[in-house]
């Protein structure tokens, strides 16, 4: 695939995104970049003076960070395989037609 205008614009935005992350690291020293949902939980605690969820986790709970990252990687891998398969299929089909 030829590098066109689209790829260049995407690359520039990706670099800007990385730059904004490094700026974020400098602006928030000591931050571990935890989930925004965790931060929202803090607000809920502030607002309600301690909220207890009325029901706990109902699905499977990964025992730790390692298993969790495995399942997230699996999710991304499944998606990437599907995308790559069909792009390759269509590209090859377009050539043979």
């Amino acid at each position: 695939m030829k590098i066109g205008k689209g790829e260049i614009i995407f690359a520039v935005i990706a670099v800007l995104f990385m730059a904004s992350f490094f700026y974020g690291m400098a602006a928030n020293p000591g931050s571990e970049f935890g989930g925004a949902d965790g931060a929202a939980e803090g607000v809920i605690t502030d607002v309600t003076g301690g909220y207890e969820p009325w029901v706990g986790n109902l699905g499977f709970e990964p025992p730790g960070g390692e298993t969790e990252s495995l399942l997230f990687a699996l999710q991304a891998a499944i998606g990437a395989v599907v995308i790559g398969y069909f792009f390759g299929y269509y590209k090859g089909k377009g050539r043979s037609d």
């Binding site: 904004s20 992350f21 700026y23 974020g24 690291m25 602006a27 928030n28 931050s31 970049f33 935890g34 989930g35 925004a36 949902d37 965790g38 931060a39 997230f72």
Partner: peptide, 10 residues
């Protein structure tokens, strides 16, 4: 989960 300028990830 991508890190953002705010020091959180989403």
């Amino acid at each position: 989960k991508l890190p953002s300028v705010t020091g959180s990830s989403s």
